[in-house]
Simulated assay, not measured.
Amino acid sequence: MRVLTLVMLAIVALLQYRIWFGQYGAGDLRQLQADVERQAESNNALKQRNELLYADIEDLREAHEAIEERARNELGMVKPEETFFRLIDKDNNPQ
């Protein structure tokens, strides 16, 4: 009976060792959970970026003011008969 108890305890100890320290054990589970959390954060950031891009696309499709604003700000375009003035702040000029 005593030998049977020792054998059973040895089997339980071996199984516990495999659960906590073996391949696909608790350490691997924690690592996978951390990987999933990092990927979820990355996905959320990309989802927000995509939503902003979709909003820009809709804005450009629907509103002509958005196209004009982009042409003025990003390309430096002006309308015919319009005068462009560039004001430079005196404090920002290194001279």
Rank of each mutant, 00 (worst) to 15 (best):
R2T: 10
R2G: 05
R2Y: 10
R2P: 04
V3A: 13
L4C: 00
T5M: 09
T5C: 01
L6K: 05
L6Q: 14
M8K: 07
L9V: 10
L9Y: 15
A10C: 12
I11N: 13
V12C: 15
V12T: 14
V12A: 15
A13N: 04
L14R: 13
L15E: 08
L15H: 13
L15S: 09
Q16W: 13
Q16Y: 11
Q16G: 15
Q16V: 08
Y17L: 15
Y17G: 09
Y17M: 10
I19H: 15
W20N: 03
W20P: 03
W20T: 01
F21R: 06
G22A: 10
Q23P: 05
Q23K: 09
Y24K: 12
Y24G: 01
G25P: 02
A26R: 05
G27S: 02
G27D: 04
G27F: 07
D28Y: 03
L29E: 11
R30G: 03
R30P: 00
Q31R: 10
L32H: 14
A34I: 08
D35G: 02
V36N: 11
Q39D: 09
Q39A: 07
Q39F: 12
A40Q: 14
A40W: 00
A40K: 10
A40H: 08
E41R: 00
E41S: 01
N44V: 07
A45H: 02
A45Q: 14
L46K: 03
L46G: 07
K47G: 01
K47L: 15
K47N: 14
Q48S: 11
Q48E: 12
R49I: 03
R49K: 14
N50Q: 13
N50Y: 12
E51N: 09
E51Y: 02
L52Q: 11
L53K: 01
L53P: 00
L53D: 01
Y54R: 02
A55E: 05
A55V: 00
D56E: 06
I57H: 00
I57W: 02
E58S: 14
D59N: 15
D59E: 11
R61I: 11
R61L: 11
E62A: 12
E62T: 15
H64M: 09
E65H: 05
E65F: 08
A66S: 14
A66Y: 10
I67R: 06
E69P: 02
E69G: 12
R70M: 08
A71I: 03
R72I: 14
N73Y: 06
N73K: 05
E74T: 10
E74V: 10
L75V: 04
L75F: 14
L75A: 03
G76E: 03
G76M: 00
M77N: 09
V78C: 09
K79I: 02
K79Y: 08
K79N: 14
K79S: 13
P80N: 12
P80F: 06
P80Y: 02
E81S: 14
E81I: 12
E81T: 15
E81M: 15
E82S: 12
E82W: 09
T83W: 14
F84E: 13
F85E: 00
F85D: 02
F85H: 13
R86G: 02
R86V: 10
R86Q: 07
L87K: 09
L87Y: 07
L87V: 12
L87A: 01
L87H: 01
D89P: 00
K90A: 14
K90W: 06
D91T: 10
D91H: 03
N92Y: 02
N92V: 07
N93Q: 04
N93F: 07
N93E: 06
P94F: 01
P94H: 00
Q95M: 06
Q95C: 03
